[in-house]
Design a protein around this nucleic acid. Structure first.
Lengths: 242, 242
DNA sequence: TATAGTACTGACCAGTCGGTCATTATTATT
DNA sequence: AATAATAATGACCGACTGGTCAGTACTATA
């Protein structure tokens, strides 16, 4: 519900604000909303780098240009901050993906491509990607957060892919495979790509993320293709062996 | 170098040990070697459950039936314990996989199947799978450990898959794909499977691990198949849609 | 039995960090 | 200007834990 306004768009409501033109120091009068998002963004960056337990709230506050006491005006606990990071970050991204799905009318293969590269654009490439690593690393310690993530991110994401696959199977474009299993196998490389960005050169794809995604799609569409369909999926002439 | 002897095999060297038959209490005279492995095993279990920072060395020691002071007789620091966990656990598993590769002579598809299910048997299914999650979560905080893992686990594992793919391409069984990218895409679902076992029902495959692997192989072999090869890979008659 | 050696212990220390709160700074109102 | 309301602070507390070490329990040898 708190779809982060662009940080530069200040005070959309009419307010008799005198705003001293000294735009140097942080303005004292800023809406709670914006402040909370700033904390969330700072927390995301540090969580991504240091992990959850490794991140000091003092540092989060400092990065957000405030003190720890202020942080506690907006969040009840470190865990609440964690949850806000997820809530704040993923909502908008998922909504746009859902919109994209709703208005798409091309082939299922193209839809899959759109979803994968859309994910890269709006999540994988952004700091949001760190959330995956975070949840993987900490879900055991925070069952509440894990449940929230499960219901509001994972389930929503899976629904998107399920629709795409169902369309492809219904249209005869894809062969008939187990939906949930296929979703797992589509998602896994994405998650690894996200995770690799926040690990010390581990499991990192050897090529660019874009080629990695391209190849994932290539293998995937070939793998999903009906056995009697002989039309090549990949563009001809891109033989990496020669 | 410390390939954990079976814990029951006591004192392979000749020793005039009187061994009081009171086998109830823990024997005071145990070799350092065994003790270190016990600590490593205990640490692995707790690291997997609580994460690295979340694990107290007191608990590790207690689980190994010793006190924290004793633990520090065997390891210089918590980080050293972490590294020992990796060293201790992955060495043997990788060695057997390499042996399996060396003596395999069937089709490349079969070799891939062997490697994937062998991984599941010897790593994915065992507590060792937790190491993946650990390294993902903590590599940033421990560059030394990360480098070690990179060189002694990842690179070794990738070599295995590279060989298998090269054989398949050379024999014409697989189409010509980018090797490193393909490796990434083979590994990702395995890592996710491992990780999911230690996360709170997150990204967990909806089916059994075995069917998950089976489907991974299915998609993969279809995806790798040469475009002009029309022989079906999957056994006919297993249509999940009907 | 005396002596030496070693595996082991657990109380302790020092530093860290999540969380609190009395106090201050800034703005709005009368 | 006086007052009230709110945003923000940072010193402080208490709990926790990685790491230490003087001392104990046990074993082996003389």
């Amino acid at each position: 519900m708190k779809s982060a306004d662009p940080p530069s768009a200040l005070l959309p409501e009419a307010l008799p604000v005198p705003v001293p033109a000294s735009a140097g120091a942080a303005p004292r009068r800023r809406r709670k909303e914006a402040r909370a998002s700033e904390f969330a963004a700072a927390a995301l960056a540090l969580f991504a780098e240091k992990g959850f337990s490794g991140t000091r709230l003092d540092d989060v506050a400092a990065r957000a240009g405030a003190s720890k006491g202020t942080l506690y005006l907006y969040f009840d606990s470190k865990e609440a901050l964690f949850q806000a990071v997820i809530e704040d970050g993923m909502g908008a991204a998922l909504a746009t993906a859902e919109a994209r799905l709703a208005e798409h009318h091309g082939s299922a293969a193209d839809l899959l491509r759109q979803l994968l590269f859309g994910w890269w654009e709006n999540i994988g490439q952004t700091p949001l990607a760190a959330i995956s690593k975070l949840v993987i690393a900490e879900s055991r310690n925070f069952p509440e957060v894990a449940r929230f993530y499960q219901q509001n991110v994972i389930e929503r994401g899976r629904r998107l892919l399920r629709s795409a696959l169902q369309r492809g199977i219904a249209s005869g474009e894809f062969r008939c495979v187990d939906l949930e299993g296929a979703i797992d196998l589509i998602v896994a490389p994405l998650l690894m790509l996200a995770v690799s960005r926040f690990s010390f050169s581990l499991c990192a794809p050897q090529t660019s993320p874009e080629s990695y995604l391209e190849m994932h799609l290539d293998l995937l569409l070939n793998g999903l293709r009906r056995a009697d369909d002989v039309s090549p999926v990949a563009a001809p002439g891109d033989d990496p062996c020669r």
